[in-house]
Every structure is written in C-alpha cells, then in structure tokens.
C-alpha cells in the first residue's frame, strides 16, 4: 500500500521534472541571447540533480546521493564560469 503511494509519487515527480527539463531545453535552443541559454543550462542541471535524488529513493540506496552532490556543485561552478565568460570574454584572467 505505502510502497504503491511512494512509487506513484516518484513516477509523477519524475514526469514533472522531465517536462520542466524539456521546457528549459526549449529556452536553451530558442535563446534569444547567451544569458538566457546559461539560465536554461542551470535549470536543466538542477532538474537533473533532482532526478538523480529521486532515482536514489526508488533504488533504496544512498549511493546516488554523492552523484547528486557532485552534480549540484559542478552546476554551480559551470554556471559561475559561464557568467564570468559572458562578462569578460575569458574565464581565468
């Protein structure tokens, strides 16, 4: 009973996050400018991290947690580097 509830909730959450990723991918391809694309990449990264957390709940192991943590931190670093690139034209000066 309770496993059914959690299973359906996980399925619905996976679907919602996937639709969110598709919408962000639409913004990524549409643009119109580079900062919009960086924003979309950031949103896609966060949603992918949440998908990995949901996969961890579904699998019942907390081995997925480290992957989610690494994805969150790499998302921050990549977004900061891209914003710096948009600002200056180079990342490390």
């Amino acid at each position: 009973m309770s496993a059914t509830i959690v299973g359906w909730a996980l399925l619905v959450a996976h679907a919602m996050l996937a639709v969110g990723m598709l919408l962000a991918a639409f913004r990524l391809f549409r643009g119109p400018r580079a900062q919009d694309r960086v924003l979309a990449i950031d949103a896609i990264n966060i949603n992918a991290m949440l998908q990995v957390v949901l996969l961890g709940i579904r699998a019942g192991t907390d081995a997925y947690f480290e992957a989610a943590l690494v994805m969150a931190l790499l998302g921050f670093v990549s977004s900061a580097a891209l914003a710096k690139f948009l600002m200056r034209g180079e990342v490390i000066e």
Binding site: V6, A13, G20, L23, A24, N47, L54, I57
Partner: peptide, 21 residues
C-alpha cells in the same frame, strides 16, 4: 509525507521551468 514532499518539490520545479519559458 514522502509523496507530498516529492510531488510538491517536483511541481515547484515544473513551475520554475514554466516561468523560464
């Protein structure tokens, strides 16, 4: 509780992407 938290969080994620579009 887990179902509510997970579905609510995913709905907010969808809402953010909708606003992005």
């Amino acid at each position: 509780l887990v179902a509510l938290l997970v579905v609510g969080g995913a709905a907010l994620g969808l809402l953010g992407a909708l606003g992005l579009v």
